[in-house]
Every structure is written in structure tokens, then in C-alpha cells.
């Protein structure tokens, strides 16, 4: 009994039912356990794996500002709209409580999006497609991304970042290729 010491030798062979169950469970485990690494190689979406240490936050801010100066194409609600070249390094900065700047990307082109925070942890959450990454201060996370559908996307923050957490919304515009 689960509440008494068992007999002197309790190490006994499994019965047929037990064998069957364990075999079934193992099989299922195998399938789901091979799935992850296999999918990692064949799947289209994987958590990115490229990270840099940002010693001084101002260094990252300077990269953002440099990109904004070079590629700014407009403004919305005081936020610059930036249209970087396809394939280039794009820098997005999180701070309490905004995502800066607004990106304008081209459908079907690939970008290397660098994410870093100027203060505390934030959550980069692209809606409505619902893709989520953690943004830490002191680290640069490089998300390589190819937008496949044109439209307006919003970036909400899904890591608690203080009392204005629910105010933190940014924007990303994906335009059809060519224009």
C-alpha cells in the first residue's frame, strides 16, 4: 500500500498491461521528442538564435537613430516611419512604454530585426499574427523575419513593464513588393 512499507523485494517484472502501456507512452514520447529537433531543421519558424551583448545602451540607441536618419520616409503620431533596405539590419528599441520607430517593410523580403531594451524587460508581440519574443536590456536579439502578407501590424508588449505596460503599442507596416 502506498502508505505502508512494501514487501522485502518489490522489484518485480511488469505485467502485460503495464508493458503495453509503457510501450505506448514511450512511442508517443518518441514522436513528440523527435518532432522538435526535426521541425527545427525543416520548419519555417524557429526561435532565432543570434544574440549580442550590448555593453552601453547608448550604442544601441545610436544605431537606431542612425537608421532613422537614413531611412525615414514619414511620420505618424510623432513616430518616424522608417523604410530600411531589404536584407539590411534593422534596429528596434523598446522603452517604457513605446516601440521605436515604426517600420515599413516589403512583403517577401528578409530583414534582420535587432531588438533591445533601454530600461527593463519588454515583450515583443506582433499582432494579429501573434508572434512573441523577449526583449532584454543589455542584449540584442536578432530576429530574421520575412513578412509574407501585406498589411498593418501592431506590436504590443506582453511582458509586464510597469504601470504603463498596457499603453505600449507600436506599429509595423508591410507593403506589397515593388512600391
Amino acid at each position: 500500500m502506498a502508505i505502508k512499507e512494501p514487501e522485502r523485494i518489490w522489484w518485480k517484472p511488469y505485467t502485460r498491461d503495464e508493458r503495453l502501456w509503457v510501450a505506448m507512452a514511450l512511442l508517443w514520447m518518441m514522436v513528440s521528442f523527435v518532432f522538435m529537433p526535426v521541425y527545427h531543421f525543416i520548419g519555417a519558424q524557429n526561435p532565432p538564435n543570434e544574440t549580442y551583448r550590448v555593453g552601453d545602451k547608448e550604442k544601441f540607441r545610436a544605431l537606431v537613430d542612425g537608421m532613422v536618419n537614413k531611412y525615414k520616409v514619414g511620420e505618424e503620431k510623432g513616430f518616424p516611419i522608417v523604410k530600411p533596405e531589404p536584407g539590411s539590419d534593422v534596429f528596434v528599441q523598446a522603452s517604457m512604454w513605446q516601440w521605436y520607430p515604426i517600420l515599413e517593410l516589403q512583403q517577401g523580403k528578409t530583414y534582420r530585426i535587432h531588438l533591445s531594451s533601454m530600461d527593463i524587460t519588454h515583450g515583443f508581440s506582433i499582432q494579429p499574427i501573434n508572434m512573441n519574443f523577449t526583449v532584454l536590456p543589455g542584449y540584442d536579439y536578432v530576429v530574421t523575419l520575412t513578412p509574407t502578407t501585406a498589411g498593418d501590424y501592431y506590436i504590443i508588449c506582453n511582458e509586464y513593464c510597469g504601470l504603463g505596460h498596457h499603453l505600449m503599442v507600436g506599429k509595423m507596416i508591410v507593403k506589397q513588393g515593388g512600391n
Binding site: 549580442y52 550590448v54 544605431l63 542612425g66 537608421m67 537614413k70 540584442d140
Partner: peptide, 10 residues
Amino acid sequence: QIPELPVFKP
């Protein structure tokens, strides 16, 4: 072991 942020051409 995380590397330092490299220099990006502006």
C-alpha cells in the same frame, strides 16, 4: 560566451 555587438555600417 555571448559576443559583443559588432560594428554595423550605418
